[in-house]
Amino acid sequence: MNDHSQLNARTLPIVFPMILIFGFYVIVNGHVSPGGGFQGGAILASVFIAKYLGNPIKTLNLYKVQNIEKVLLLFLFVLMTGFVTLSIHMILHGSLIFYIILANILIGLKVACGFTIIFYRFVFYESR
């Protein structure tokens, strides 16, 4: 992929904000419409694939992305176990929307980081 086409490089940046907005829409509206964290995370990861098709960079620091993913998973553990085992859901009975939106956002960002790492790892290390 060293000789990428100019057509991709010029037209794909127009699509980036639309994919980003659609991904965040799917994640944040996961509790009222079809969608959720996993699906929106996959859509967000497709942004990086389109970015690679347009501008094939070789120097992305994957360890930073992996550390971000680990921190997001830690937050998810703290949120879920703390929120449900401390029985706050019994106090706030019937209004768990904030918990659900926050968990959806964390899962979506985590899944996006994970799929990005898988894709870039295949591109960097296996395509030689």
């Binding site: 996993f38 899944v111 898988i118 790892r121 295949f122 296996e126």
Partner: peptide, 14 residues
């Protein structure tokens, strides 16, 4: 199950 299948496929391809 879908996400588990994706990760299994990725690991086996690697």
């Amino acid at each position: 199950a879908v996400v588990v299948g994706i990760s299994v496929t990725a690991v086996s391809l690697t």
